[in-house]
Nucleic acid binder design. Structure first.
Length: 910
DNA sequence: TGGCGAACTTAGCATCTCATGG
DNA sequence: CCATGAGATGCTAAGTTCGCCA
């Protein structure tokens, strides 16, 4: 390769349209520099580049290095007859070409890119989001981030130093360094023997004295040793701990195996030695609808074959759900109808007189009767008595019982998703081309079972057999099948609380911690490479910069014909970034799950310059920004710094490291010495920052806007009440006006007359319904007691209060005064009730603030996947907040290893 | 060296449940 | 004390990574 000429024919990575030249000539580089050096924003036009830029779009220098870049111009492949799935040519993977245009306007109809949620109409309007976080976010956070990064680098150095020392003195380094190389070791291993160690059931020999399998206290020595561990010298010290460890008391009757205190295994490619389980739980068979519940076609009842009817119920059941946005999505509708039609063709549909009929138009299909039936059934379920409910639950539990657990190397472990996914409509996210298709029922014949050799093979349902039964000790799954829509593999694996999952979680975080030691070198290197004259290297460095600083995902290529069009770092396209000189970049693209990433960040000038270069003409919409880079190249490079290092580790590292720093800072906040609630809030604030870093969002529920409004109204109402109370003071004692100052008694401006009227009406209304309800209820009670019910007259009587209130307001509005109300009214009393109101207002306000802050940020994802749980445990100890405040029951289970392993190590650091 | 199969983690939405406050 | 709604849990789609193969 080398020569430029080759580049065009030799698409390095994904040739998707135009390529950049493989080298950056010096002249070109300089030209770019020049064009940038003038900070005079807008004017930054370089001499040769001409006055391009509009600040927004790229401003590339077309000229300069005339280096042949023949650029494959119009690679806009028109091609794509249709499927051609099998892109015969090695060239690009399937490209989206055609979609290019639409896609970037990204407001297609039914897309739901978060924020832009559903209906196209709202979507545009909405998005305060984009406006709100415009500059601020990225730029603001930038500084803080920079600080944190700097710390990261310093740490790296410090760690190495410390480590060097520690090596010399291999003492009880308890959990720190010492143990963190261990995992490493294992990952090296993995590389090393990776494929070679293919032989399946190799028994792991425990080499060095498995005597040092000290571990788990009353460990079931048997199973422990069965696990075959090899300790490397580091027979940690943890023994001390185990000595003292009180009995785990855990709910588990059984002794718990504390693998985190056990020596590391050398060969972790063998996942188990013995494995027993009961297979999977199939979805219940379809229960046909009663004869009188039918779909209607063109107003007439239709008798569907059970197969088709089942599909109809998939749709109908979604009609009753809270949000029907899928059903409004044209793609969903189209795909559904296509599949539904196929079912009808295949299995038939008849009219009332038993004649076969055609279903040609979806618009004529009416599922509402089925939906009603469905809803009624749900209602009935809800209305069941306590006993009935309990009975139903008992039945369900009994059914599930056999599948709940498996036995893994002799230990009982929770299984995760033992239920085979029931048939349904595929709910692809975003603009998924296949969303709405029918996901068919999975038969035993499609399921492969993975189980220990000696174990009893689960019996398939009567009359059926498994697709296969295997005994792969390198696999952690118990059963597997492929789904019909995308051919995706589905696995039944252990639950998050299981040992294997815990172990890999632990390894993940240890790997991220390991990255700390290399981060400074990595940063130094890529900073240097940002100027590389080799385009591929420069792109890689730039991508690394983005992954490191902005926590972007790696960004594999995707099959745009069959999947939603989303991107990550390496797959960013021309239209996904816009540059604002001198150093701001705005990202706007759909990431995983079609969640929109829309941030503006300030970047290193060299990065800015590079991005400009990568957008250089003739590249245009639809072209890859990083046309000479893909994730394997990137990961291969990363791997050279540290075994096992890949792009995703940066996300973990960034999240945990950030959290760590934020929590440290909390120590300075006086509120960290406040109430538990305050401390929890502080923690959550940190959590939120991490979630924002990772762009973890959630849909702001349809009702949320209203809820917010409601909250706001309640606050306003309170302020109104506060004002009224003040006026009452005046009513009692006019001299207060002087004492307090007239301003004190002025009504807040936003509580204008109009609003007040409305609010009064609301209060009046509220009072009325309250009285009515009370009345009805009282009567019910009387009735139940067989007593005489109260006459309507009584109600009228009671409703006088409403009239009174109305009159009162009227008078107030006219006179501008408020009569003191309540018994024993006194200035003091009013003052104290004002205080109370103030208090309530404050509570509501923080609540509102919190809710608003959370409305589109999901804290859970980062908590579950990215933030080292030990950070939370340590925080909890240090600030004396029960761990329950941070981890729910399931999370405590999942993070058992973390909770136990830093139990008494308040000084543990990420 | 890129494409693909496979395996496992990450992700948001749907649904359930239980605490809370009207 | 029951109805709500927030938070917990369940579900499964959508990513990343790795190894193998041609």
């Amino acid at each position: 390769m080398a020569s430029d000429s080759s580049d065009d024919d030799m698409p390095i990575a994904r040739a998707n349209g135009r390529l950049s030249s493989s080298k950056i000539s010096r002249t070109e580089d300089i030209a770019l520099d020049k064009s940038m050096s003038k900070p005079s924003g807008m004017a930054g036009l370089s001499i040769r580049n001409g006055p391009i830029e509009n600040g927004e779009m790229d401003l590339d220098s077309p000229s300069t290095n005339g280096s042949k870049r023949k650029s494959r111009e119009s690679i806009i492949k028109v091609d794509y007859k249709d499927e051609s799935e099998s892109d015969g040519e090695p060239l690009a993977k399937r490209q989206r070409s055609k979609k290019v245009q639409e896609s970037d306007s990204d407001d297609e109809p039914m897309v739901k890119a978060r924020g832009k949620k559903l209906p196209p109409s709202y979507k545009e309007t909405a998005l305060p989001q984009s406006s709100s976080d415009e500059q601020p976010l990225g730029v603001k956070l930038a500084k803080k981030k920079a600080d944190i990064e700097r710390k990261g680098e310093l740490e790296a150095k410090a760690i190495r130093a410390k480590e060097a020392k520690a090596k010399a003195t291999p003492k009880k380094a308890i959990k720190n360094e010492s143990d963190d190389d261990l995992p490493l070791a294992s990952s090296h291993k993995r590389q090393a023997n990776g494929s070679t160690a293919k032989r399946k059931s190799t028994v792991v020999k425990k080499d060095e004295s498995d005597s040092d399998a000290p571990i788990s206290k009353k460990s079931k020595a048997a199973s422990a040793s069965a696990k075959g561990k090899r300790v490397s010298s580091a027979k940690d010290t943890k023994d001390t701990k185990k000595g003292k460890s009180k009995e785990p008391s855990d709910e588990d009757e059984e002794e718990e195996f504390e693998w985190w205190n056990a020596p590391k295994r050398e060969d972790d490619s063998i996942k188990w030695n013995t494995l027993e389980h009961n297979g999977v739980l199939f979805a219940p068979e379809y229960q046909p609808l009663p004869k009188n519940v039918k779909m209607y076609y063109d107003g007439k009842p239709v008798t569907l074959s059970p197969e088709a009817e089942e599909v109809a119920t998939f749709w109908a059941s979604m009609m009753t759900a809270a949000s029907t946005h899928h059903l409004d999505n044209p793609i969903f509708r189209k795909n559904f109808f296509a599949d539904f039609s196929d079912f009808i063709k295949k299995y038939g549909a008849k009219d009332a007189s038993g004649n076969k009929i055609d279903i040609k138009s979806f618009d004529l299909c009416d599922f509402s009767k089925i939906a009603e039936y469905w809803a009624a059934k749900n209602e009935a379920k809800k209305a069941m008595t306590k006993e009935e409910k309990a009975a139903a639950k008992a039945e369900k539990d009994a059914l599930e019982a056999p599948y709940l657990h498996c036995t893994w190397d002799g230990r009982k472990q929770k299984v995760g998703n033992f239920r085979v996914e029931p048939p349904s409509l595929f709910r692809g996210r975003g603009e998924h081309p296949k969303t709405g298709k029918v996901k068919t029922r999975v038969l035993p014949e499609q399921i492969t079972i993975n189980i220990g050799k000696g174990a009893k093979i689960p019996t398939p349902p009567a009359g059926h057999k498994w697709k296969a039964v295997q005994h792969d000790q390198k696999a952690t799954w118990l059963a597997m099948w492929q789904e019909n829509i995308n051919g995706a593999y589905k696995y039944v694996m252990l639950g998050a609380a299981s040992d294997v999952k815990g172990q890999s979680d632990y390894k993940k975080f240890e790997k991220a911690r390991e990255l700390k030691k290399h981060i400074d070198k990595i940063r130094r290197d890529y900073t240097k490479d940002l100027k590389s004259e080799v385009m591929a290297d420069r792109q890689r460095a730039t991508a690394m910069y983005l992954i490191d600083k902005l926590a972007l995902r790696a960004g594999n290529e995707k099959d745009t014909e069959n999947e939603a069009d989303t991107v990550g770092c390496c797959s960013l396209k021309y239209e996904h970034i816009s540059l604002q000189p001198p150093d701001q970049v705005t990202f706007d693209f759909l990431g995983k799950d079609s969640i929109r990433y829309n941030e503006t960040a300030r970047v290193d000038p060299q990065v800015f310059k590079n991005l400009k270069l990568f957008k250089k003409a003739p590249k245009t919409d639809g072209d890859d920004l990083f046309d000479r880079l893909n994730t394997s190249q990137l990961n291969k490079h990363l791997n050279s710094y540290m075994p096992g290092l890949t792009a995703k580790v940066f996300r973990t590292y960034n999240a945990s490291h950030t959290m760590s720093e934020l929590l440290k800072e909390l120590g300075k906040d006086p509120r960290s010495r406040g109430t538990i609630a305050e401390k929890v809030k502080l923690y959550n604030d940190c959590n939120r920052k991490v979630a924002i870093l990772c762009n973890h969002k959630r849909t702001v529920g349809a009702g949320h806007e209203q809820q917010m409004q409601k909250l706001g109204d309640r606050i306003k109402g309170l302020r109104y009440q506060k004002w009224r109370t003040k006026k009452m003071i005046l009513d009692l004692d006019a001299t207060q006006k002087k004492k307090k100052g007239a301003a004190y008694f002025v009504r807040d401006e936003d509580l204008d007359d109009e609003w007040v009227k409305e609010h009064q009406a609301f209060l009046v209304d509220e009072l009325r319904t309250k009285i009515q309800k009370k009345f009805e209820k009282d009567n019910e009670k009387l009735k139940a007691n067989k007593e005489r019910v109260m006459p309507e007259k009584e109600l009228k009587e009671r409703l006088h209060a409403v009239k009174d209130l109305e009159a009162r307001f009227k008078k107030e509005n006219k006179t501008g005064k408020v009569e003191a109300e309540g018994r024993g009214a006194s200035v003091e009393k009013f003052l104290s009730s004002i205080d109370k109101i103030d208090e309530r207002i404050r509570v509501l306000e923080t609540q509102a603030e919190d809710r608003d802050g959370n409305k589109e940020v999901a804290l859970s994802t980062s908590k579950i996947n990215y933030i080292d749980p030990r950070l939370t445990v340590v925080f909890s100890k240090k600030f004396d907040v029960p761990i329950e405040k941070f981890f729910s029951k399931t999370l405590r289970d999942k993070f058992r290893w973390a909770i136990k392993s830093v139990e008494d190590a308040e000084d543990w650091e990420f």
